[in-house]
Protein backbone atom coordinates (compact mmCIF):
# COMPACT_ATOMS: atom_id res chain seq x y z
CA UNK A 1 0.00 0.00 0.00
CA UNK A 2 0.93 3.63 -0.41
CA UNK A 3 0.86 6.03 2.51
CA UNK A 4 1.10 9.78 2.85
CA UNK A 5 2.96 10.72 6.00
CA UNK A 6 3.12 14.09 7.68
CA UNK A 7 6.03 13.92 10.09
CA UNK A 8 7.29 16.44 12.64
CA UNK A 9 10.92 17.35 11.90
CA UNK A 10 13.01 19.26 14.38
CA UNK A 11 16.80 19.50 14.30
CA UNK A 12 17.30 19.86 18.04
CA UNK A 13 15.75 21.14 21.23
CA UNK A 14 16.56 24.77 20.45
CA UNK A 15 15.32 24.85 16.89
CA UNK A 16 11.80 25.35 15.62
CA UNK A 17 10.30 22.26 14.09
CA UNK A 18 7.82 21.82 11.27
CA UNK A 19 5.81 19.13 9.51
CA UNK A 20 7.23 17.62 6.33
CA UNK A 21 5.25 15.38 3.97
CA UNK A 22 6.62 12.04 2.82
CA UNK A 23 5.13 9.36 0.60
CA UNK A 24 5.99 5.71 1.20
CA UNK A 25 5.26 3.05 -1.39
CA UNK A 26 5.09 -0.72 -1.16
CA UNK A 27 4.23 -0.85 2.52
CA UNK A 28 3.33 -4.39 3.50
CA UNK A 29 0.45 -4.84 5.92
CA UNK A 30 2.64 -7.23 7.91
CA UNK A 31 5.17 -4.52 8.72
CA UNK A 32 5.19 -2.92 12.10
CA UNK A 33 4.86 0.85 12.21
CA UNK A 34 8.54 1.19 13.06
CA UNK A 35 9.54 -1.05 10.15
CA UNK A 36 7.56 1.23 7.87
CA UNK A 37 9.59 4.16 9.25
CA UNK A 38 12.78 2.11 8.70
CA UNK A 39 11.82 1.74 5.05
CA UNK A 40 11.27 5.48 4.77
CA UNK A 41 14.60 6.16 6.50
CA UNK A 42 16.41 3.86 4.09
CA UNK A 43 14.91 5.82 1.24
CA UNK A 44 16.12 9.06 2.86
CA UNK A 45 19.62 7.63 3.29
CA UNK A 46 19.78 6.79 -0.42
CA UNK A 47 18.68 10.31 -1.23
CA UNK A 48 21.35 11.67 1.10
CA UNK A 49 18.83 13.32 3.41
CA UNK A 50 18.73 13.39 7.20
CA UNK A 51 16.87 10.36 8.52
CA UNK A 52 13.88 10.65 10.83
CA UNK A 53 14.89 10.07 14.44
CA UNK A 54 12.62 8.02 16.64
CA UNK A 55 13.12 6.08 19.84
CA UNK A 56 13.06 2.30 19.70
CA UNK A 57 14.76 -0.58 21.40
CA UNK A 58 13.18 -3.97 22.06
CA UNK A 59 10.51 -3.76 19.34
CA UNK A 60 8.37 -6.24 21.25
CA UNK A 61 6.37 -3.92 23.47
CA UNK A 62 8.29 -4.20 26.71
CA UNK A 63 10.89 -1.43 26.74
CA UNK A 64 8.61 1.57 26.37
CA UNK A 65 10.95 3.51 24.09
CA UNK A 66 8.94 3.82 20.91
CA UNK A 67 6.51 6.53 21.88
CA UNK A 68 5.02 8.82 19.27
CA UNK A 69 1.68 10.35 18.48
CA UNK A 70 0.09 8.72 15.43
CA UNK A 71 -3.03 10.34 14.02
CA UNK A 72 -3.85 11.83 17.40
CA UNK A 73 -3.33 8.65 19.40
CA UNK A 74 -0.34 7.84 21.59
CA UNK A 75 1.18 4.68 20.05
CA UNK A 76 -1.39 4.93 17.29
CA UNK A 77 -4.87 3.44 17.03
CA UNK A 78 -5.82 0.23 18.82
CA UNK A 79 -5.81 -0.62 22.51
CA UNK A 80 -2.96 -2.15 24.45
CA UNK A 81 -0.18 -1.82 21.89
CA UNK A 82 3.07 0.11 21.75
CA UNK A 83 4.11 1.68 18.43
CA UNK A 84 6.36 -1.30 17.66
CA UNK A 85 3.38 -3.64 18.05
CA UNK A 86 1.20 -1.54 15.77
CA UNK A 87 0.95 -3.21 12.40
CA UNK A 88 0.37 -1.55 9.10
CA UNK A 89 -2.77 -3.61 8.63
CA UNK A 90 -4.38 -1.03 10.91
CA UNK A 91 -4.15 1.41 7.99
CA UNK A 92 -5.60 1.49 4.50
CA UNK A 93 -3.99 2.20 1.14
CA UNK A 94 -3.77 5.94 0.57
CA UNK A 95 -4.18 6.86 4.25
CA UNK A 96 -2.78 10.14 5.51
CA UNK A 97 -0.90 9.67 8.78
CA UNK A 98 0.20 12.51 11.03
CA UNK A 99 3.19 11.55 13.19
CA UNK A 100 4.18 13.85 16.05
CA UNK A 101 6.36 13.55 19.12
CA UNK A 102 4.75 13.22 22.57
CA UNK A 103 3.93 16.77 23.61
CA UNK A 104 4.46 17.96 27.17
CA UNK A 105 6.55 20.61 28.84
CA UNK A 106 8.13 17.83 30.90
CA UNK A 107 9.07 15.91 27.72
CA UNK A 108 11.20 18.32 25.64
CA UNK A 109 11.74 17.28 22.04
CA UNK A 110 15.36 16.30 21.40
CA UNK A 111 15.11 15.60 17.69
CA UNK A 112 12.20 14.84 15.35
CA UNK A 113 10.09 12.30 17.25
CA UNK A 114 12.54 11.72 20.09
CA UNK A 115 11.59 13.28 23.42
CA UNK A 116 13.52 13.41 26.67
CA UNK A 117 11.58 11.32 29.17
CA UNK A 118 14.21 11.42 31.90
CA UNK A 119 11.69 13.28 34.07
CA UNK A 120 10.22 9.83 34.74
CA UNK A 121 13.62 8.55 35.88
CA UNK A 122 14.04 11.50 38.22
CA UNK A 123 10.61 10.85 39.74
CA UNK A 124 11.59 7.24 40.38
CA UNK A 125 14.90 8.31 41.88
CA UNK A 126 12.99 10.44 44.38
CA UNK A 127 10.74 7.67 45.64
CA UNK A 128 10.11 4.82 43.24
CA UNK A 129 12.09 2.24 45.17
CA UNK A 130 12.24 0.16 48.32
CA UNK A 131 15.02 1.58 50.44
CA UNK A 132 16.12 -1.66 52.14
CA UNK A 133 17.67 -4.65 50.45
CA UNK A 134 14.98 -7.28 50.62
CA UNK A 135 17.34 -10.16 50.11
CA UNK A 136 16.83 -13.13 47.84
CA UNK A 137 13.58 -14.75 46.85
CA UNK A 138 11.74 -15.89 50.00
CA UNK A 139 10.27 -19.38 50.27
CA UNK A 140 6.87 -19.67 48.71
CA UNK A 141 4.10 -18.80 51.19
CA UNK A 142 6.66 -17.80 53.87
CA UNK A 143 5.05 -14.37 53.80
CA UNK A 144 1.35 -14.74 53.04
CA UNK A 145 0.22 -12.30 50.35
CA UNK A 146 -3.38 -11.97 49.22
CA UNK A 147 -3.75 -13.24 45.66
CA UNK A 148 -5.71 -10.12 44.75
CA UNK A 149 -2.93 -7.86 46.05
CA UNK A 150 -0.16 -9.70 44.26
CA UNK A 151 -2.14 -9.66 41.01
CA UNK A 152 -2.90 -5.94 41.31
CA UNK A 153 0.73 -5.18 42.12
CA UNK A 154 1.90 -7.24 39.14
CA UNK A 155 -0.61 -5.55 36.83
CA UNK A 156 0.72 -2.16 37.94
CA UNK A 157 4.31 -3.39 37.52
CA UNK A 158 3.51 -3.95 33.85
CA UNK A 159 3.96 -0.17 33.35
CA UNK A 160 6.83 0.34 30.91
CA UNK A 161 7.18 4.07 31.56
CA UNK A 162 6.60 4.97 27.91
CA UNK A 163 4.88 8.27 28.70
CA UNK A 164 1.76 7.61 26.62
CA UNK A 165 -0.36 8.61 29.65
CA UNK A 166 1.28 12.04 29.71
CA UNK A 167 1.00 12.39 25.94
CA UNK A 168 -2.68 11.46 25.90
CA UNK A 169 -3.68 13.54 28.93
CA UNK A 170 -5.12 17.00 28.18
CA UNK A 171 -3.24 18.24 31.26
CA UNK A 172 0.04 16.39 30.57
CA UNK A 173 -0.41 14.62 33.88
CA UNK A 174 1.81 11.73 34.90
CA UNK A 175 -0.64 10.38 37.46
CA UNK A 176 -1.11 7.01 35.76
CA UNK A 177 2.64 6.40 35.65
CA UNK A 178 3.21 7.52 39.23
CA UNK A 179 0.17 5.64 40.53
CA UNK A 180 1.35 2.46 38.80
CA UNK A 181 4.58 2.71 40.79
CA UNK A 182 2.64 3.39 43.99
CA UNK A 183 0.58 0.22 43.49
CA UNK A 184 3.47 -1.85 42.22
CA UNK A 185 5.63 -1.11 45.25
CA UNK A 186 2.97 -0.42 47.85
CA UNK A 187 0.77 -3.49 47.78
CA UNK A 188 3.38 -6.11 48.61
CA UNK A 189 4.83 -6.65 52.10
CA UNK A 190 8.36 -5.42 51.29
CA UNK A 191 7.16 -2.07 50.02
CA UNK A 192 4.10 -1.47 52.16
CA UNK A 193 6.08 -0.11 55.10
CA UNK A 194 7.27 2.91 53.15
CA UNK A 195 3.95 3.70 51.50
CA UNK A 196 3.35 7.03 53.18
CA UNK A 197 6.80 8.44 52.57
CA UNK A 198 6.87 7.08 49.06
CA UNK A 199 3.61 8.62 47.91
CA UNK A 200 4.54 12.03 49.29
CA UNK A 201 7.93 11.95 47.62
CA UNK A 202 6.54 10.77 44.29
CA UNK A 203 3.78 13.39 44.20
CA UNK A 204 6.21 16.18 45.08
CA UNK A 205 8.66 14.95 42.44
CA UNK A 206 5.88 14.76 39.85
CA UNK A 207 4.88 18.37 40.54
CA UNK A 208 8.48 19.48 40.44
CA UNK A 209 8.94 17.96 37.01
CA UNK A 210 6.05 20.07 35.70
CA UNK A 211 3.49 17.38 35.07
CA UNK A 212 -0.12 18.52 35.28
CA UNK A 213 -2.85 17.56 37.69
CA UNK A 214 -5.36 14.82 37.02
CA UNK A 215 -8.84 15.92 35.94
CA UNK A 216 -10.10 12.37 35.65
CA UNK A 217 -10.71 12.26 31.92
CA UNK A 218 -9.24 8.74 31.96
CA UNK A 219 -7.66 9.27 28.53
CA UNK A 220 -4.46 7.80 29.98
CA UNK A 221 -6.08 4.45 30.68
CA UNK A 222 -7.50 4.33 27.16
CA UNK A 223 -4.08 4.98 25.62
CA UNK A 224 -1.83 2.94 27.91
CA UNK A 225 -0.12 0.16 25.93
CA UNK A 226 -0.05 -1.95 29.09
CA UNK A 227 -3.67 -1.13 29.99
CA UNK A 228 -2.80 0.14 33.46
CA UNK A 229 -6.05 0.81 35.30
CA UNK A 230 -7.13 4.19 36.66
CA UNK A 231 -8.00 2.45 39.94
CA UNK A 232 -4.28 2.89 40.60
CA UNK A 233 -4.82 6.66 40.57
CA UNK A 234 -7.59 6.26 43.14
CA UNK A 235 -5.17 4.19 45.23
CA UNK A 236 -2.48 6.88 44.98
CA UNK A 237 -5.02 9.48 46.14
CA UNK A 238 -6.07 7.25 49.04
CA UNK A 239 -2.47 6.70 50.13
CA UNK A 240 -1.81 10.43 49.80
CA UNK A 241 -4.72 11.27 52.11
CA UNK A 242 -3.58 8.62 54.60
CA UNK A 243 -0.02 9.94 54.44
CA UNK A 244 -0.87 13.58 54.96
CA UNK A 245 -3.65 13.47 57.54
Amino acid sequence: MKLHLKIWRQVNNNSKGKFINYDVDNVSEHMSFLEMLDVLNEKLVHKGEDTISFDHDCREGICGSCGMMINGFAHGPGAGVATCQLHMRSFKDGDKIVIEPFRAKAFPVLKDLVVDRSAFDRILQKGGYISAKTGGIPDGNAIPVKKEDSETAMDAAACIGCGACVAACPNSSAMLFVSAKVSHLGLLPQGKIENKERVKKLVAAMDEEMFGSCTNTYACEAECPKEISITNIARLNKYFIKATL
Binding site: K6, G72, V98, R103, S172, Y218
Partner: peptide, 20 residues
Amino acid sequence: QNRKLRPIGYKKYKLSENAN
Protein backbone atom coordinates in the same frame (compact mmCIF):
# COMPACT_ATOMS: atom_id res chain seq x y z
CA GLN B 1 -1.49 25.70 35.65
CA ASN B 2 -2.33 22.79 33.37
CA ARG B 3 -2.80 24.78 30.19
CA LYS B 4 0.85 25.88 30.32
CA LEU B 5 2.14 22.34 30.44
CA ARG B 6 1.79 21.61 26.73
CA PRO B 7 3.31 24.70 25.09
CA ILE B 8 3.11 23.18 21.60
CA GLY B 9 -0.17 21.45 20.97
CA TYR B 10 -0.87 18.49 18.73
CA LYS B 11 -1.80 18.86 15.11
CA LYS B 12 -4.06 15.88 15.51
CA TYR B 13 -5.35 14.95 18.96
CA LYS B 14 -8.14 12.42 19.39
CA LEU B 15 -9.07 13.12 22.99
CA SER B 16 -12.70 12.72 21.96
CA GLU B 17 -12.18 8.99 21.49
CA ASN B 18 -10.38 8.50 24.78
CA ALA B 19 -12.34 10.65 27.18
CA ASN B 20 -16.07 11.03 27.64
